[in-house]
Design a protein around this nucleic acid. Sequence first.
DNA 1: TCTGGGGTCCTAGGACCC
DNA 2: TCTGGGGTCCTAGGACCC
Length: 424
Amino acid sequence: MKAIVDCNSFYCSCERLFRPDLRKRPVVVLSNNDGCIVSRSDEAKNLGVPMAGAYFQARPIIQQHNIAVFSSNYNLYGDLSWRVMETLRSLSPMVEVYSVDEAFLDLSHVPVDELEAAALHIRHTVEEWTGISVSVGVAPTKTLAKLANYIAKKNKAASNCIKVLATPEQLAPALQSTRVNNVWGVGRAFANKLINQGITSAWELSTMPEEWAHRHMGGITGVRLIRELKGIPAIDLEEPLKVKKMIATTRMFGEPVGDIGSIKEAVATYTTRAAEKLRRQHSAAKVISVFIVSKEQDHMIDFHHGPSISTHITLPIPTSNTQELIKPAVDMVDQLFTRGKEYKKAGVMLSGLVPDESIQGNLFVSQEKNNNRFLMDILDNVNFSMRGDILKFAAVGTARNWKMRQELHSSRYTTRWDELFEVR
DNA sequence: TCTGGGGTCCTAGGACCC
DNA sequence: TCTGGGGTCCTAGGACCC
């Protein structure tokens, strides 16, 4: 058996933890740049605030109901996420951290008639140790555990925030009552296709033959989905510490930018951040891609797929050195930039990742290379211990007139001494 | 006026080879 | 008139997730 543990309205719960006055008040948290709504408390959901809706569109309803609004505070969420995951690791021999607010747990050591008690124990322990409330779904496969979790969350009062789907008698009604678009792995495109063919429930989908899934639902991915729904594990729990195959840092600008100097500063900054992520997992990158997105006039039409233009280069030797990455990245901006146009977003992607062999001093590379790596380590250590950019490269600039908007930021209660929560 | 920022996996199709 | 049959590798792009 597998469990998925999912924090309830995670970002909102984090904000509430240090603001007891908000316990009963509806809360929402905004994405970067204060663009759209990415987390809603139950009260905000019930008032009809849409998920992933644009903030400016939801503003009337937010004001009308006196909903508390926060810019996203990733320092805080990251730290609380770590506490939740550490708690889970003490409860199960195998934990796969799936996202900032979710983890899969292996419960194969728990007898079937004790699953309910185990799920409840997990929930209570996390809440007691971290103050974050969670929902727990338990089932034979990851996809069914997600489905169980979905049911638990839909009616928290009835479910006690846990749902176990272990026997055929438990599974059949759950599958029958779940619409196909709420199944994990069925997105908008597939959902429309399925509904057009008269397949509307998870149950109906689970009865489809595998060849059919292979033809109509993205090949092998569709076959796995059907198997998982039937209770046959097809997606395993992943080992921890998976090394990423691609690293990206991309951001919207606070406001449209028309001068190439600012865009270069932004790209240099994003490259710096991406290189840090690269070194953290002891990788070096062979390929650097840069893209910029121009400000669209008619952004009401599918703003996610704006006219982005991109280019990439392949380095002669893979590197994790910030200086060696910044230079080509910034040069690529010259190729992409058109004078007179305004841009709203830029991004840097590092791919073709290989293990970085010169992490410790290496006999077989030049002294100069080892020194560079040493410099990078010092830089990372200083910046990490200070939790911020204390040391920077000149190319990132200091004016930062492209940086994102964050007007409603809460304090970094758990990672900054000077922002500690005060009790009088 | 104002719409996020990461990631993964898979497939199709082109280039190239013998 | 007539135009093989495999392979492999790479890239772009679609679909999905939170």
